[in-house]
Amino acid sequence: MSWDLFLLLLQASVTTIVVSVVSIVLGFLLATVVCAGTMSSNTLARGAGRLFVSFFRGTPLLVQLLLIYHLLPQIGLDVPSEVAAVAGMALCTAAYQAEILRGGFGAVPKGLMEAADMCGLGAFATFRRIRLPIAVRLTLPSLVSEIIMILKASSLVSVVGVIELTRMTQDLAASTFLPLPLYASAGVIYLAINAVIAGVGTVLERRVARGHA
């Protein structure tokens, strides 16, 4: 396998990274809303949040992507396949991240909030200064795993026509008859990206570890 082929794979992995990062960020924003819903005292909001989480965690991402890809044009949204792909991945990861956040908020010891209450911090300050920072620290390892999951899951957007790493490998394998080295190279690139994410995660976790209970 030539160096040129490998360069093409590297180029395509930029798309993989961009699609993943955009999905993760959009998914996180959506997840805060969904999480607020599932933790809400309002029955309707809680039900909607739970239904969202249940559906997007209970069905294959591939099916979600295909559904959204075909649904968007039918409801008059003619968007490029990249947008459909990002929409599908963001919705899916939002469901997972919402559950991670809910777990994190739930794991903040009640006593820490009571202490804040006794110190007169008030509801908003208690959330901003105590509950949120501790929940973020508690969820950091799970969020890093979720980022790695999404990076791997981004390979599925190849089926809706986004030319990312997996799709590029597939196309090159078909034209060069070199599937073994090509797919192995793609695997190595995925491993390398994941190693970087995991490494950054470890550094972040170590940085906040000092402030752990």
């Binding site: 791997k152 390979s155 599925l156 997996t166 192995a184 793609a186 695997g187 491993l191």
Partner: peptide
């Protein structure tokens, strides 16, 4: 285990089926 967990299932199945 690290290789399997660090790469997409789709790539693994392509490698097996086409490679």
């Amino acid at each position: 285990v690290e290789v399997i967990r660090g790469t997409p299932f789709l790539v693994q199945i392509f490698l097996l089926y086409y490679g």
